[in-house]
Design a protein around this nucleic acid. Structure first.
Ligand SMILES: [Zn+2]
Ligand SMILES: [Zn+2]
Ligand SMILES: [Zn+2]
Ligand SMILES: [Zn+2]
Lengths: 131, 131
DNA sequence: AATATTTTGTTATAATATAACATTACCTTC
DNA sequence: GAAGGTAATGTTATATTATAACAAAATATT
């Protein structure tokens, strides 16, 4: 069984490395300017890498921030994500989701929709920003 | 106690009307082209209206679609929204959220964040698209 | 009426994302 | 190892989404 990261291509690794080193969600064009020294010079190179990294669950997109963050929950099923987001500093934290998944089954039934994924974004103020 | 809609300005009413008549989430530039006959000719006019309408809870933004939809749950607290979204046709349905709010309190504690809002987007395939 | 405030209008531009095609690297198979 | 195929990368251009900054008009307040 191969290491997931080994399956990634050069550009995908470059982009993932940068995202993992960031302590906050990062925007595509911020990634671009930060990895330009490594040879990625145009948006499609970054967006292609982002797309693949999301597919394999290495990163997630924070929709409300148009930003990307490394997965810290070893998401096997990247179809369900939960993040808490500080409205003041944009710091995010991935929430583990075992309990919630069960809960969401009920909501599925309520809407007659065959559920295949979800994204929950919780907004608030983090401890640091509250003081 | 005044009617919420009465407090809206001309442009806000125009934009809201269009969104309410749409049976799907609509994009800002689609709104713009559809209300241009009513005098709104530039993006800021639409975006300003959208901002206000979100503030007062008349509409919500579907972040994963960059689209806007009328509130159908008479959201008093527009801080928590739940939508089911068909990945095939982009149809959405607002889910009432009484049960979930309680559930989210726990998640708040899990992250040491003072929660003030949330947005849950559930993805799946609607009945129509499944057949 | 004069003044302040809010809303609207307008121009320009920023920020986010993708389409389309060219080139290179990397396999495979003969 | 040349020929041909596939995947990855590079490149240019453009589409889409959103906001800044300022001007004009409408509305409210004094
Ligand atoms: Zn994850
Ligand atoms: Zn914070
Ligand atoms: Zn609502
Ligand atoms: Zn559908």
């Amino acid at each position: 069984m191969k290491d997931k990261k080994k399956e990634l291509t050069k550009n995908q690794k470059i982009v993932l490395d940068f995202i993992q080193k960031s302590n906050k969600p990062v925007k595509a064009y911020s990634i671009l300017s930060n990895v330009s020294k490594k040879g990625l010079k145009a948006p499609p190179q970054v967006y292609r890498a982002l797309e693949k990294l999301m597919e394999v669950g290495e990163i997630h997109k924070i929709e409300s921030l148009n930003s990307f963050v490394a997965c810290n929950s070893k998401c096997i099923e990247p179809n369900g994500t939960i993040f808490s987001i500080c409205k003041s500093c944009d710091q995010t934290k991935e929430v583990s989701n075992t309990e919630l998944f069960k809960f969401l089954s009920d909501i599925k039934d309520m809407n007659g929709i065959e559920l295949s994924g979800y994204n929950l974004e919780l907004f608030g103020t983090c401890k640091t920003c509250k003081t």
